[in-house]
């Protein structure tokens, strides 16, 4: 038997500084080294656990109330979807898209008579990762809400909804009950191995039950290691004002928030070949 090491490392370790992707893992033959194999298994185990972590509604409601008091905003409301538990939630997406009758009535009570003012409803929803909401929802709203009230001082903000066992489309029920012109849903995205804490934001103009994905705009991967709260705030601010101006949301509202920034057209990267001289072998 030879004493030659079986692991062949990859000499591009320094590229790990640019991405959390599992690059430069090395190999034994063409297969993963044992350490990398087990690291993956551990990450999967943690993501599986994250899916089943319940939303800490009590603490979140207090924090949202605190936020509302400072702005000021009406008091937040706790709502439930028709999915009774996690098991049902995972197998019955239809149940997660609709509020219970009790929650609808609660919202209608909290709503005020519709006036001329443009109405915005905001919902914070557990989705597939309560961890994402625990990590991101409050700090994001702390950045977004003051920016919004400054940018759109004449808009009427409805009470913030906190929803248990909800999916994106639950915003349609909320928007309807509050007679909102626009609904914004902050929701925990599918936990990834490297990002069990990623939050998404969905925007729907004229929300009503039965709206489809083509009518929504999405901002994804909001988390400390992903899209920053500041960037997500400027993107959402842009989408909201455009949606109001055009009277629509979805695929016909192209997201051009970035296009005002000059640097975003750059294509520099380490792999680009300088002066377009092709690599000759």
């Amino acid at each position: 038997m030879s004493n030659k090491p079986c692991i062949i490392p990859n000499p591009w370790q320094q590229l790990k500084q640019f991405t959390d992707a599992r690059i430069a893992q090395g190999r034994a033959g063409v297969s993963l080294p044992t350490r990398e194999l087990l690291a993956f298994q551990l990450a999967h185990a943690r993501a599986r656990d994250a899916v089943h972590t319940p939303l800490n509604s009590e603490a979140l409601l207090l924090e949202l109330a605190e936020l509302a008091r400072h702005l000021p905003l009406p008091k937040p409301v706790l709502l439930q979807s028709q999915a009774q538990d996690r098991q049902q939630y995972l197998q019955r997406p239809d149940a997660g898209r609709q509020l219970t009758e009790q929650s609808i009535q609660l919202l209608i009570q909290q709503s005020s008579p519709k006036t001329e003012a443009f109405r915005l409803a905001i919902a914070v929803v557990d989705g597939l990762s309560a961890t994402a909401i625990h990590t991101n929802a409050i700090p994001y709203l702390q950045a977004f809400l003051p920016a919004l009230t400054k940018q759109c001082p004449d808009w009427q903000l409805m009470p913030i909804s906190l929803v248990e066992q909800g999916r994106v489309a639950i915003g349609d029920d909320i928007g309807t009950a509050l007679q909102a012109d626009l609904v914004v849903v902050l929701i925990g995205e599918r936990p990834g191995l490297s990002s069990p804490d990623s939050m998404g934001i969905y925007l729907t103009y004229a929300p009503k039950r039965g709206c489809t994905d083509e009518q929504r705009n999405c901002i994804s991967n909001i988390r400390p290691g992903g899209l920053s709260y500041a960037d997500a705030t400027s993107k959402l601010g842009y989408l909201l004002t455009q949606a109001k101006q055009l009277g629509l949301s979805g695929v016909n509202l192209k997201e051009r928030a970035d296009e005002t920034r000059l640097e975003s057209s750059r294509t520099d990267n380490f792999l680009a070949v300088p002066n377009h001289n092709a690599v000759q072998q």
């Binding site: 991405t19 992707a21 899209l227």
Partner: peptide
């Protein structure tokens, strides 16, 4: 499929090099 959560070009390029290799 060299996806990156913020479309960082060096991040994408790192996954491309890894894949090509």
């Amino acid at each position: 499929q060299p996806n990156h959560p913020t479309d960082d070009l060096n991040g994408i390029a790192a996954s491309i090099l890894d894949g090509l290799m």
